[in-house]
Amino acid sequence: MRSFTYERATSPQQAAAIVAERKGAKFLAGGTNLLDLMKLEIETPTHLVDVQDLDLDMIEETAEGGLRIGALVSNTALSADPRVMRDYAVLSRAVQAGASGQLRNKATTGGNLLQRTRCPYFYDTNMPCNKRSPGSGCAASAGYSRQLGVVGISEDCIATYPGDMAVALAVLDAVVETIRPDGTSRSIPLGDFHLLWGDTPDKETVLEHGELITGVVLPKPPGGQHYYHKVRDRASYAFALVSVAAVLQPDGTGRVAFGGVAPRPWRKDEADAALTQGAKAVVEQAFAGSATRDDNKYKIALAERTLAGILAEARS
């Protein structure tokens, strides 16, 4: 871990301003991913702005009948909020499926959106990786890719966004709110928040340097039945091979998103529209244009089977 300087921010705008004026500065919230990567010098901030004291840890109701989740709300608090459990169960379920009790206590809503990939070649600094070291190549592309992406990926990077929470936020049409160094704020639909890798896999989100996530807004409750099924190699404390978030209405319509398969929570309007035709039709739409490898092509079949299980449960 390289040396850095440390300070605690006192307001969101101040935090944004400090980070903006220093090229190597980063926000520090829970730290569960950032410190992990700093120990390996995959992240090498020269200055950390600790945002823990900011007043961003509330879940409030919005005028539109939805919820605003402060960026510093912990995963635990989010998943246990009575309103979230009642009206946005898919979100509660997705968060519970992630990480461990200890990590969920520390991980924040904002930080979780910025969680970086778990590609093992990204984590091994001896290996070429276009995300970690642009232009060095992608060791994963022809390597061990059982956990890696099958859709929305590129020649330069086949990593996935590894989280669970954002997959649920995607089906909920959540909006990410930020504050910029100049004090202005913007609202970014979750579906636009994470970038596809293209030829710049080092750029992962639309955030500008110094732009701080202040919260996530959920529109009014979508009703219906909520499902989050995460398939992993062990029963807990593991990243998804495939996860499926779904909100299903009594008439069979609904919304669906897939995790563990792409650079972002993977949601397609065409796939939603195919829900009444069954899992096979949905997956055909969602995974159109996929690029699989021998050791990860199972993900498409697994996505279909996982969704089929959800649809069967919804019918029963």
Partner: peptide
């Protein structure tokens, strides 16, 4: 009162 992984937390936090 809450359990955390102390390895993923800076002391200064």
């Amino acid at each position: 009162g809450e359990r955390i992984n102390s390895c993923l937390s800076l002391a200064v936090q």
